[in-house]
Design a binder for these strands. Structure first.
Lengths: 237, 237
DNA sequence: CGATGCGTTGATAACTTTCAAATTTAGTGG
DNA sequence: CCACTAAATTTGAAAGTTATCAACGCATCG
């Protein structure tokens, strides 16, 4: 399973006004003097599109002509397995880019989890820019490499126990979408289960267990408060 | 955990004589006229090194200054988890490139499974070439994207049952290292178990089960004959 | 021939899923 | 804003799968 591609850029993540140029990623990596950056170029090459909650962004069988950058909202990519189960490839939050890994066709479908605005850019436009600008090419390469490492982390996660997977998931989300120790989850328990390769019941039970152990609090089902990060990190392995 | 990076190139895979220039990948993708290809350039930039069976190629904590291409033999990358378990990132066979995903430091260790010859190339040399040649840059990007898709397949694999994982593994190896329906496995049962996130006992039992079901034959522990691919594919999901 | 490493097989325990039901939350219409 | 209905989440009990612990077989090597 898998995240199509999730690149987090050093950008403000919450309530980014649509259509405003993101500032260049700070210190992402060295680039040749005077070269454009992907951060700057993307908004100029694409259009912002809105997707209501639970609507499809693209289907698994469709040609993959675009790259997507989340402006606001949240996205899940997924694949329906032959036995009917759904495997979630990845969750994408504001600042994340997805679609990088696609070949000619998407290997996953993508849906908006919440109302979402995306910056949509033609792959060919990015490719053309990259072929003229080595800095941009390098940036693309680095983004993909970063996504690759992220996917490797995912593989490490999936061989662990249910408790470890849930703890790791919470820590990952805390890193990506938290204000302090409060994690706001845009996705349902079913989404989490399909991401972690567990059942919804196991996810729910594990969260209850962590709450009993005073590692977290669950004031509402979509809000998790991390009470004991060291304990979660221990579980994380 | 995970495969550092495994790119299969359209090259002859068995007994490639060391230090002989591989022919350019046939039809891997379009490149600008007259541009060099990575396939051609790599051997000119690096050196071939030999590693006896079970020796370390690099350690997890070491700086990652090189890319590696398997000339002959086989390699495993792995990571030791905090609980002492070993997770195998990937297996690399002749023609595969690994090390692409690394950041400043390796996230995995690498060992020769069998006596192995590797083409070792400085990352900086490849990067320099890529910055001058958009075709090379594109090639690198494509290689990484391919590896990303491969890792996604891996994630899909790991959420399945033991039987599905083993069946998928056999099919994967058949594609990569088989002569017809005979698969020669360079790695031990323990390696396979650590790759699939199972125990050695479960792998062994599952293979025995597949043999009872007449899907495979196991004449020796390192040789598997695929007797019923459709059945394996069904298990594969 | 005995030791050692690897693989297989068996019995039991631990963990996760499955099936079912209760409870809470969210959405809709009045 | 409240009531009602549907959906989501949580919890319980039983079944299924995989891991663990243990023993055995087989091959290689000295």
């Amino acid at each position: 399973m898998l995240a199509q591609t999730a690149i987090r850029t050093a950008q403000p993540r919450h309530f980014v006004p649509p259509m405003r140029n993101p500032r260049p990623a700070a210190g992402a990596f060295a680039r040749g003097e005077g070269a454009e950056s992907l951060q700057q170029s993307l908004p100029l090459m694409g259009a912002t599109m809105s997707y209501p909650r639970n609507t499809e962004i693209f289907g698994e069988d469709e040609p993959s002509d675009y790259l997507y950058k989340v402006v606001s909202g949240s996205v899940r990519t997924y694949k329906i397995l032959s036995d009917g189960r759904r495997q979630i490839g990845g969750f994408y939050l504001p600042g994340d880019v997805f679609g990088l890994e696609s070949a000619d066709e998407h290997s996953f479908s993508a849906e908006a989890i919440t109302d979402t605005k995306l910056l949509v850019v033609k792959r060919s436009a990015v490719a053309a820019l990259a072929s003229r600008d080595a800095g941009i090419a390098r940036e693309l390469f680095d983004l993909t490499g970063r996504e690759l490492r992220r996917m490797q982390e995912r593989v490490l996660l999936l061989v662990k126990s249910a408790q470890e997977r849930v703890a790791s998931f919470l820590l990952e989300m805390a890193e990506r979408a938290s204000a302090g120790n409060i994690v706001e989850l845009p996705m349902s328990r079913q989404d989490i289960a399909d991401y972690l390769g567990l059942t919804i019941e196991t996810v729910s039970r594990t969260l209850s267990g962590l709450e009993s152990a005073a590692a977290i609090e669950v004031p509402t089902s979509r809000r998790i408060v991390l009470r004991n990060r060291p304990a979660l990190n221990r579980l994380n392995g």
